[in-house]
């Protein structure tokens, strides 16, 4: 019934537009465009340029507070941030200049009766210039980009990394530290049973000292601890569908794919406590807490987050895990307080 009502409203609006057309009459004007139309729209196009610039400025200054903290929470992320800044600068300059020419020319050369357009069909020189210039700029970007990519993805030279498994399932995360031998025991979905929700293989001796953070009886895993200054190699698995482990503060993301183990690594470089004192973070959270207060919600504190970033079902939007980066000594203390797989069984 209501659908009908709303459809009717749409019909009414459409009919109103229809009437409007009639009022305007359809025989107006020169066929191509009158000088007046060219003039008005030429000026309006200049206005559109202003609108675009305005949006750029508004977005860059006005929205500055909402962005992630400038400070990367991982050592590798600093390379990414530098590359990002360079690329973004280029992007903004190109955008600024190209839009200027589009709209300025549109305005400047808006049609006037009797003016002759300039027959200019080709120029080998110009074509070369704007093939080669982007080629050179891109060569630079590609080379630097690939260097950064290798730096981030290559873990072969890591000394004594911490191995952590992240296990994704609809709609929560579990985790497992590799324990004293720093080697993860085998696991498979075929061994999931009872409290062994991660399907860890009992018979694999590497598994005994593993430290799993598993869900038990409807309880979620609450937080994942990481040490500052030690490279962490994440091994990612999924139990059911694709998920993606996204840790934006660390500039880190990797998909979790059922049937295979994927990997990503970074070195946390800022503890949670330090990040809470960061001025970007403080500005952002001050703002957030003001907004929350208006809504009558309790205040919150900054925390690193693991989000799911690959559509995985109805609660995809709420598949999260808190990450806490500690000084290495604190981390070790925390880890020692956790039960190993052998102790759990």
């Amino acid at each position: 019934m209501k659908a009908l009502f709303f459809t009717l409203i749409f019909v009414v609006i459409a009919v109103a537009c229809w009437q409007f057309v009639k009022l305007l009459g359809l025989t107006k004007g020169d066929q191509i465009a009158t000088e007046k139309e060219n003039n008005i729209n030429g000026w309006l196009m200049l206005g559109l340029l202003g609108f675009i610039y305005g949006l750029m400025i508004y977005s860059m200054y006005g929205a500055k507070d909402v962005l992630l903290p400038q400070l990367s929470a991982s050592a590798e992320g600093e390379h990414i941030d530098l590359l990002f800044k360079m690329t973004m600068t280029l992007v903004l300059v190109v955008q600024f200049v190209m839009q200027f020419f589009i709209f300025y020319f549109t305005f400047k050369y808006r049609g006037i009766k009797g003016r002759k357009a300039y027959f200019f069909a080709d120029s080998h020189k110009l074509e070369m210039i704007w093939t080669i210039t982007p080629a050179i700029v891109l060569a630079g970007l590609i080379i630097y980009g690939l260097w950064v990519w290798n730096e981030v993805m290559d873990t072969s030279d890591a000394e004594n990394p911490l191995i952590v498994e992240l296990y994704a399932k609809q709609f929560q995360w579990e985790a497992r530290y590799a324990g004293a031998d720093n080697e993860l025991g085998n696991a498979s979905v075929r061994m999931i049973e009872g409290t062994n929700t991660m399907g860890i293989d009992f018979s694999d001796k590497n598994a005994n000292d593993d430290i799993p953070l598993m869900v038990s009886e409807g309880k979620f895993v609450k937080e994942l601890h990481l040490p500052k200054g030690r490279k962490v190699i994440f091994k990612l698995r999924s139990q059911d569908v694709l998920h993606s482990a996204f840790m934006p503060h660390f500039r880190a993301q990797m998909n979790c794919v059922p049937g295979m183990v994927t990997q990503f690594a970074f070195t946390p470089s800022v503890t949670t406590a330090e990040m809470r004192l960061n001025k970007d973070t403080q500005a952002k959270f001050k703002h957030i807490n003001e907004l929350r207060e208006k809504e009558g919600k309790e205040a919150v504190e900054f925390d690193y987050l693991l989000l799911c970033n690959k559509i995985c079902g109805s609660s995809h939007y709420n598949m999260q895990l808190k990450i806490i980066v500690d000084e290495e000594a604190d981390f070790n203390k925390w880890l020692a307080g956790q039960k190993t797989f052998a102790q759990l069984n």
Binding site: I102, Y109, R115, E127, W130
Partner: peptide
């Protein structure tokens, strides 16, 4: 290249908007 060519086409035209 396409972007530049469009812009150059506008340059010194007699644009019918």
């Amino acid at each position: 290249v396409k972007g530049f060519n469009y812009i150059t086409t506008l340059w010194k035209g007699n644009l019918q908007l």
